[in-house]
């Protein structure tokens, strides 16, 4: 059995009080409780404060380009579908720069868990507005307040085909761990949007803000209904934040549709022996 220590890399450089600390511990705890080890997990990190977890979390990993963590994870999963594959990225990275990949990742139902750190700002570039910020949010890049409506990642994921859509809060570690474990266990594209205060740059979406406005979905909530789930996701626009699994369905993952991968992973296959049959097209 691996331990939290096995997954623990360098001392994090996050600001004291940053929500990333809690998310980092929750990811490690969930992986340990799942019986995984740093050698059995692949994590594709985005670029930003969340992506900097690359040095703090031990695992096979890629710390790639801003916005592109998901396609790297998709390529990895297609090549080695037996390995647990996770994306760690921020809201600007995943919903802004990489928005197109998010859309198509949902459609494809790739067997990948995306843990998205949603703090409504770009922390690493010192506090510009992120796509999830409320309309009118004032930042260095939007001094008069942002004109656009915020992205609603949950309703987007539900409608575009993600098969596991959940929300957690960085201030509630036990709930975060349980939600992440469920996401890791899910076969298909799972997304956990983690509400995360940025103590340095975001003075609105603070710990007290989320404590006051978030609530846990009760035991009676059934996550198998798309319309109900959508209703929950839309509460975001009234500053209400449901926590837990909003939506879940079983649908074959992308790689399960590929006959090439039915017997073994792509990386472990031997070279095809007889390609002579390809030449008939050219005679």
């Amino acid at each position: 059995m691996s331990t939290i220590q096995d997954f623990t890399g360098y001392q994090p450089t996050w600001c004291p009080g940053c929500g990333n600390w809690g998310i980092g511990v929750a990811i490690k705890s969930a992986l340990v409780q799942m019986g995984l080890s740093p050698s059995s997990v692949f994590v594709s990190f985005g670029i930003g404060c969340s992506g900097n977890m690359n040095d703090f979390l031990n695992a096979y990993a890629s710390h790639g380009l801003h916005g592109r963590a998901l396609p790297v994870a998709i390529g990895f999963k297609l090549s080695n579908h037996k390995m647990k594959t996770i994306v760690v990225a921020g809201d600007g990275d995943f919903y802004g720069e990489g928005g197109n990949h998010f859309l198509h990742g949902c459609r494809g139902n790739h067997d990948i868990t995306a843990i998205i750190h949603d703090n409504s700002v770009y922390g690493l570039t010192t506090g510009q507005v992120a796509p999830t910020a409320s309309k009118g949010y004032k930042s260095k890049s939007t001094p008069a307040g942002i004109i656009e409506m915020p992205v609603n990642p949950l309703s987007f994921a539900i409608t575009q085909g993600a098969t596991f859509v959940a929300q957690a809060f960085a201030g509630n570690a036990p709930h975060m761990i349980e939600t992440m474990k469920s996401a890791f266990q899910h076969k298909g594209f799972s997304i956990v949007n983690v509400l995360q205060p940025c103590v340095t740059f975001n003075k609105i979406n603070t710990y007290p803000y989320y404590m006051q406005k978030s609530y846990k979905l009760g035991p009676d909530y059934q996550p198998n209904n798309k319309v109900t789930a959508l209703g929950k996701a839309l509460e975001f626009h009234e500053e209400k934040f449901p926590l837990g699994i909003l939506y879940k369905e079983d649908r074959p993952a992308y790689h399960e549709h590929l006959p090439q991968l039915a017997d073994s992973t792509l990386v472990s296959q031997s070279k095809p022996k007889d390609l002579a049959g390809l030449l008939g097209d050219f005679i």
Binding site: P71, V72, L78
Partner: peptide, 24 residues
């Protein structure tokens, strides 16, 4: 071979890089 028609060329190359990272 696994052949994927991805959503754009940025996804294309990053998906392929993911495959290379996995050893394929």
């Amino acid at each position: 071979m696994v052949v994927r028609h991805a959503e754009d060329e940025i996804s294309v190359i990053n998906t392929a890089l993911g495959g290379s990272l996995a050893g394929v």
